[in-house]
Design a protein around this nucleic acid. Sequence first.
RNA 1: GGCGGCGUAGCCAAGCGGCUAAGGCACUGGUCUGCAAAACCAUGAUUCAGCGGUUCAAAUCCGCUCGCCGCCUCCA
Length: 489
Amino acid sequence: MPVKIYNTLSRKKEELQPIEPGHVRLYVCGITSYDYCHIGHARSALAFDMIVRYLRYLGNKVTYIRNFTDIDDKIITRANEQNTTTEELANRFIDEFYVDMDKLGVDRPTMEPKATEHIQEMIDLITELIEKDMAYPAGGDVYYSVNSFANYGKLSGRNLEDMQAGARISVNENKTNPMDFVLWKASKPGEPSWNSPWGPGRPGWHIECSAMSRKYLGSTFDIHGGGQDLIFPHHENELAQSEGANNKPYVKMWIHHGFVTIRDEKMSKSLGNFLTIRDILDHYHPEVLRFFIFSTHYRNPLDFSEAAMQDSMTGLKRLYECLAAVDALEDNCQDKVDSIAGAKDIKKIESLEENFQKAMNNDFNTAQAQGSIFETVKTMNKILRTLPDAPSSEDHKLLQTAAATIKKLAGIMGILQVPAAVYLAVGKAEMLAKTDISEAEILACIEERNQARIDKNWAKSDEIRNNLLEKGIELNDGPKGTGWSVKRS
RNA sequence: GGCGGCGUAGCCAAGCGGCUAAGGCACUGGUCUGCAAAACCAUGAUUCAGCGGUUCAAAUCCGCUCGCCGCCUCCA
């Protein structure tokens, strides 16, 4: 079953057919490193983490390149504000980026090139464009001439006339055409700069990706990814540079993910409505964020809210409860006992992996893939609740195999990777820390109450229970004794 | 103004020409319990923003209308 991917370039879903069969080459635009990352960056990293994991799960080799932009206007401005160098600032936030990525359990790409370490490659590329008359130096800058590239606008579906009509472009006397964009920027005094044939300066934003992708993936590669806001101008310009210089198709498929929104507005620094990854991780388990992000298809907008995070938390817990129940199964099965699972149940459980793949092959539909896991869990719970104390070894094995499959598949989304009992216990401990009561005190109350219950002193029993409830502790009486949990506020 | 996307049950969200319109959360009922809570089970759209059209067949394709959002400036 082939993987179908929505290609921004063709605006259609297309089958993934790697140039080298079995080896997918992927380039993703990473962060500009001058601040902490927000949830939008998390979505990007997580989406491509999932895509790479899935392609590898299918048996492909994946070469995954994600760059760091470590020199640009914002970095220079911020470094000046903080009285530091661009290098120190960029590296500091690259380190912070890794802190966040590690917490989220994002796998490292194959390579993570930095712009400043590829100045020569960029100069070479710009030189080639000038030689081909597709770029021109002017006043220490070098510009790409959009008129020299017949297909300019093909990725974003624009044409030069329309764009100039509604142009919000500042007038730049050096440019021949207002839509021309900078490949090399002359540096002002005090700014970081590199020597070049056009004088001291620094690279424009787009050229780094053209240069680095060519170096590591070749002139034509399989997939290029990024956020939808990069389609224009960044990716459009990259495409123009690369195809202009190489005379070959740049990328076979373009993948662009949607934004994270808050109250249906794009999260952005200018609106001031962004939440950093660490803001979220202070309050939620990383898997809750992953569960939330993968509950919507990657191309659709994803609206962040506390309520949505709570829902994700509840949903994830439901999955873990099922895995914990399977883990807790005692190893006392009997061969002579009849199996409880009906043919339909078995079929349903056994079709999980196929359904999961079907969903993922359809443009990485994680929302649907999650649904297939929930369906399986429902069937497993049905079996679990009617399972005798000494279950048949067939049922036991069925459940354990199902749990293992769930963990394997969920791992592509990076969820259900903690031992279930640990996840549930850690969540409980973290919540307990937010109350002003200790576990020992709770257990003492439970003991006292259990004596009251033995005495059938319901008034006292309920009083103890209510007192605990006021402190945020809920009790639950079960066949195996009385347990407790922290009530969600 | 140009380009693109979205509008499916109370909320979130799949489905993108044909099996009963997935799944999650919430609600309600049940199991459990001394009573609860938690957990589990069960239950909800004759209908997919509206109106037309194409088709044997449409939430799915086409057109128009309404509403929301994004890009066109740095942005994941």
